[in-house]
Nucleic acid binder design. Structure first.
Length: 112
DNA sequence: TTGCTGACTGCCT
DNA sequence: CAGGCAGCCAGCA
Protein backbone atom coordinates (compact mmCIF):
# COMPACT_ATOMS: atom_id res chain seq x y z
CA UNK A 1 0.00 0.00 0.00
CA UNK A 2 1.34 3.41 -0.88
CA UNK A 3 2.54 5.83 1.75
CA UNK A 4 0.14 8.49 0.53
CA UNK A 5 -2.84 6.21 1.11
CA UNK A 6 -1.63 5.44 4.61
CA UNK A 7 -1.30 9.12 5.42
CA UNK A 8 -4.83 9.71 4.29
CA UNK A 9 -6.12 6.90 6.46
CA UNK A 10 -4.32 8.09 9.56
CA UNK A 11 -5.41 11.66 8.95
CA UNK A 12 -8.98 10.50 8.68
CA UNK A 13 -8.67 8.83 12.08
CA UNK A 14 -8.10 12.30 13.57
CA UNK A 15 -11.44 13.65 12.39
CA UNK A 16 -13.60 14.07 15.51
CA UNK A 17 -17.15 12.81 15.89
CA UNK A 18 -19.74 15.26 14.66
CA UNK A 19 -17.39 16.91 12.16
CA UNK A 20 -16.81 16.34 8.43
CA UNK A 21 -14.09 17.02 5.86
CA UNK A 22 -14.12 17.17 2.08
CA UNK A 23 -12.00 14.86 -0.05
CA UNK A 24 -9.78 17.73 -1.04
CA UNK A 25 -9.29 18.90 2.53
CA UNK A 26 -8.48 15.41 3.69
CA UNK A 27 -5.88 15.06 0.96
CA UNK A 28 -4.38 18.44 1.88
CA UNK A 29 -4.02 17.54 5.53
CA UNK A 30 -2.44 14.26 4.51
CA UNK A 31 0.17 16.10 2.49
CA UNK A 32 -1.35 15.58 -0.94
CA UNK A 33 -2.25 19.09 -2.19
CA UNK A 34 -4.00 17.89 -5.31
CA UNK A 35 -4.89 14.44 -4.13
CA UNK A 36 -8.65 14.57 -3.84
CA UNK A 37 -8.93 11.70 -6.29
CA UNK A 38 -6.48 9.75 -4.19
CA UNK A 39 -8.51 10.42 -1.07
CA UNK A 40 -11.58 9.00 -2.74
CA UNK A 41 -9.62 5.97 -3.79
CA UNK A 42 -8.20 5.55 -0.29
CA UNK A 43 -11.69 5.26 1.14
CA UNK A 44 -12.86 2.89 -1.55
CA UNK A 45 -10.11 0.39 -0.90
CA UNK A 46 -9.88 0.82 2.88
CA UNK A 47 -10.00 -2.49 4.79
CA UNK A 48 -12.93 -2.84 7.19
CA UNK A 49 -10.68 -3.70 10.12
CA UNK A 50 -9.25 -0.20 10.12
CA UNK A 51 -12.65 1.02 11.26
CA UNK A 52 -12.18 4.39 9.60
CA UNK A 53 -14.81 7.11 10.09
CA UNK A 54 -15.30 7.12 6.32
CA UNK A 55 -18.76 8.60 6.64
CA UNK A 56 -17.21 11.88 7.81
CA UNK A 57 -15.80 12.48 4.32
CA UNK A 58 -18.13 14.28 1.91
CA UNK A 59 -17.84 16.25 -1.34
CA UNK A 60 -16.67 19.87 -1.07
CA UNK A 61 -20.13 20.99 -2.14
CA UNK A 62 -21.53 19.55 1.06
CA UNK A 63 -23.19 16.60 -0.61
CA UNK A 64 -22.64 12.94 0.08
CA UNK A 65 -20.40 11.74 -2.72
CA UNK A 66 -21.77 8.24 -3.12
CA UNK A 67 -24.51 7.20 -5.55
CA UNK A 68 -27.73 7.86 -3.72
CA UNK A 69 -29.25 4.55 -4.80
CA UNK A 70 -26.54 2.66 -3.00
CA UNK A 71 -26.82 1.08 0.40
CA UNK A 72 -23.72 2.94 1.55
CA UNK A 73 -25.39 6.25 0.87
CA UNK A 74 -28.20 5.50 3.29
CA UNK A 75 -25.72 4.17 5.83
CA UNK A 76 -23.52 7.25 5.63
CA UNK A 77 -26.48 9.52 6.19
CA UNK A 78 -27.56 7.51 9.22
CA UNK A 79 -24.11 7.49 10.76
CA UNK A 80 -23.77 11.26 10.35
CA UNK A 81 -27.15 11.94 11.89
CA UNK A 82 -26.30 9.62 14.75
CA UNK A 83 -23.36 11.93 15.47
CA UNK A 84 -25.50 15.02 15.44
CA UNK A 85 -24.71 16.19 11.91
CA UNK A 86 -27.73 17.58 10.12
CA UNK A 87 -28.29 16.06 6.70
CA UNK A 88 -31.11 17.73 4.78
CA UNK A 89 -31.87 16.75 1.20
CA UNK A 90 -28.61 14.82 1.09
CA UNK A 91 -26.67 17.97 1.94
CA UNK A 92 -24.61 19.08 4.89
CA UNK A 93 -23.85 22.61 6.09
CA UNK A 94 -20.08 22.70 5.62
CA UNK A 95 -19.66 26.03 7.35
CA UNK A 96 -21.15 24.53 10.45
CA UNK A 97 -19.72 21.02 10.49
CA UNK A 98 -16.39 21.30 8.68
CA UNK A 99 -13.49 20.04 10.78
CA UNK A 100 -10.89 22.73 11.34
CA UNK A 101 -8.01 21.07 13.17
CA UNK A 102 -5.92 23.14 15.54
CA UNK A 103 -2.14 22.80 15.69
CA UNK A 104 -2.19 20.06 18.29
CA UNK A 105 -4.45 17.90 16.17
CA UNK A 106 -2.33 18.45 13.09
CA UNK A 107 0.76 17.39 14.94
CA UNK A 108 -1.03 14.30 16.10
CA UNK A 109 -1.79 13.29 12.55
CA UNK A 110 1.81 13.87 11.52
CA UNK A 111 3.02 11.38 14.09
CA UNK A 112 0.96 8.60 12.51
C1' DT B 1 4.61 3.68 -22.43
C1' DT B 2 -0.32 4.77 -23.43
C1' DG B 3 -4.90 5.32 -22.45
C1' DC B 4 -8.90 5.01 -19.38
C1' DT B 5 -11.12 5.45 -15.03
C1' DG B 6 -12.89 7.54 -10.86
C1' DA B 7 -16.95 7.56 -3.33
C1' DC B 8 -13.54 14.95 -6.72
C1' DT B 9 -13.23 20.27 -7.77
C1' DG B 10 -13.95 24.73 -9.35
C1' DC B 11 -15.58 27.42 -13.02
C1' DC B 12 -18.90 28.52 -16.50
C1' DT B 13 -23.76 28.26 -18.60
C1' DC C 1 -29.71 25.69 -8.27
C1' DA C 2 -28.72 22.08 -11.81
C1' DG C 3 -25.87 20.40 -15.37
C1' DG C 4 -21.51 20.34 -18.31
C1' DC C 5 -16.67 20.25 -18.60
C1' DA C 6 -11.76 20.48 -18.26
C1' DG C 7 -8.20 19.61 -14.91
C1' DC C 8 -6.37 16.47 -11.75
C1' DC C 9 -3.29 12.20 -10.71
C1' DA C 10 -2.46 7.42 -8.82
C1' DG C 11 -3.58 2.63 -10.36
C1' DC C 12 -4.29 -0.76 -13.70
C1' DA C 13 -4.75 -3.20 -18.12
Amino acid sequence: MSEAINKIWSTLLAVPKGKVVSYGQLADLAGQPRGHRLAARALKIAPDELQLPWHRVIAASGKIAIAKESESYRLQMELLRAEGVEVTNGRINMNKYRWQPDLAELLWTLKH
